[in-house]
C-alpha cells in the first residue's frame, strides 16, 4: 500500500447566503501525508471546518466547490454519488466536534460505533460489527462497561474517545479531527490528541487536526497551517512556525496563548484589536490589513498570495518577519 495522501489544490468553497455568495474558503492548497499530522489553526469563521466538511462533500446543497480535493489521487469534487458514499468513512473519516450531539441519544454507544462497519463492509453481521466496535472502544482506552451504555451515561471525554473509535473503526486512509477537544477539559484534551496522533502513526493514517488552539497543535503536528478569512496565510514546519512566526497574524495568535509561570507574559500586551472580517465584505487588499500592526499603504491595494518564504515555509504577507 502506498502512503496515504490528501491534497487540496486551489480549493474554494462559496456558500449560498441569503444575501449573495459567501466565500468561506478561498483557493487553499494543502498537502497531508500519512505519518506527518498537519494542524490547521485559525479563529472562528476562518474556514477551518468548511475544509473538513468539503473533504467529504458534506456541504449544504447549492454550495459552490471549485479546485480539487485529491484523496490518493482521486478527485472528491467530481466523484459520483455511489463512490462518494463508499469513500466517506472508509477513505476519510471525521472526528466531529461536540461529542454529545454527534451521538444519537437513544442508541447504545457500541451500536453507533458499529454503524460504519455495517454500512461499509457488505456481509458483516451485527454481531461481528459490534465485536469490532467493542474492540475499537477498548483500544481507545474506554473501560469495558462503557460500550453497552447510552451516550448521556458517558463523560464528555469518554464520548470524544468513542467518536475517535468510530472514526478509526473502518481503518480509513485519512482522519480529519474537527476541533476534537473543544468540549473536553484540559487533561483529557492532551489525552485525546495523544491518542489521535498515536493511532494515526500506528495505522499509517493521514491526520488533519483542526483547532483554534495553536499551542495544542504545536504539540501534535509536524506541520502547521494558519488560516485567516478563508485563506492559509502561513504554512510551515511546526517548530519554525511556533518559534519564529513570519506573519503578524500567526504572531498574534501565538501571543494570545498565556504562558503559565512566566510573570512577564502577564504584562505583555496581547490579543488583536478588531474582529475577523465579514466574508461577504472583505477589506481591500490583504484581508488582515485593518487589524495588522505592520500594515502600510501597499497592503490596502495588494491581495497578497501565499508565497515561498525561506526553504520550507510559505507566508502570505508583504512584510513577513519576526514578531515585533
Amino acid at each position: 500500500m502506498t502512503a496515504a495522501d490528501l491534497r487540496l489544490q486551489d480549493l474554494s468553497v462559496t456558500y449560498r447566503g441569503a444575501r449573495g455568495p459567501v466565500p468561506a474558503v478561498r483557493s487553499v492548497t494543502l498537502a497531508i501525508a500519512a505519518g506527518a499530522p498537519v494542524g490547521l489553526a485559525g479563529e472562528s469563521g476562518s474556514g477551518k471546518s468548511t475544509i473538513a466538511h468539503a473533504v467529504l462533500r458534506l456541504l449544504p446543497p447549492g454550495t459552490e466547490l471549485t479546485g480539487q480535493i485529491l484523496l490518493d489521487g482521486e478527485d472528491v469534487v467530481t466523484m459520483g454519488w455511489g463512490r462518494l458514499r463508499a469513500v466517506r468513512w472508509a477513505g476519510a473519516a471525521i472526528v466531529f466536534q461536540g461529542a454529545l450531539h454527534a451521538l444519537n441519544p437513544i442508541r447504545r454507544v457500541v451500536d453507533q460505533v458499529a454503524e460504519p462497519v455495517l454500512i461499509h463492509s457488505a456481509g458483516t453481521t451485527h454481531r461481528q460489527a459490534r465485536d469490532r466496535a467493542a474492540e475499537m472502544l477498548s483500544r481507545v482506552g474506554l473501560p469495558a462497561g462503557t460500550s453497552a451504555r447510552y451516550p448521556h451515561q458517558l463523560s464528555g471525554g469518554q464520548r470524544q474517545l468513542a467518536l475517535i473509535a468510530m472514526a478509526m473503526v473502518c481503518s480509513p486512509r485519512f482522519v480529519i479531527a474537527d476541533e476534537p477537544t473543544s468540549a473536553v477539559d484540559t487533561v483529557t484534551r492532551a489525552r485525546v490528541v495523544r491518542l489521535l496522533t498515536a493511532t494515526a502513526a500506528e495505522q499509517d493514517i493521514g491526520l488533519l487536526l483542526i483547532s483554534h488552539d495553536l499551542t495544542l497543535l504545536t504539540t501534535a503536528c509536524t506541520r502547521l497551517a494558519v488560516m485567516y478569512a478563508g485563506r492559509v496565510i502561513e504554512h510551515g514546519p511546526t517548530a519554525d512556525l511556533a518559534s519564529a512566526p513570519r506573519h503578524p497574524y500567526t504572531a498574534a495568535l501565538l501571543a494570545a496563548a498565556p504562558a503559565v509561570g512566566d510573570p512577564a507574559a502577564r504584562y505583555r500586551p496581547r490579543g488583536l484589536p478588531g474582529d475577523p472580517p465579514d466574508p461577504t465584505a472583505l477589506p481591500p487588499g490583504c484581508a488582515f490589513q485593518p487589524r495588522c500592526p505592520r500594515a502600510t499603504a501597499a497592503c490596502a491595494t495588494t491581495d497578497v498570495e501565499l508565497r515561498a518564504d525561506g526553504p520550507a515555509r510559505r507566508t502570505a504577507c508583504l512584510h513577513p518577519g519576526p514578531a515585533t
Binding site: L58, A86, W89, I94, H101, L103
Partner: peptide, 20 residues
Amino acid sequence: EPYLERVRALGAGHVHQLRH
C-alpha cells in the same frame, strides 16, 4: 440533529438514516 450529519458523513444511505 448533528448525529444525522454524522451518519451522513459515515456514508449511510437514506434507508439506514430513516430506519436507525
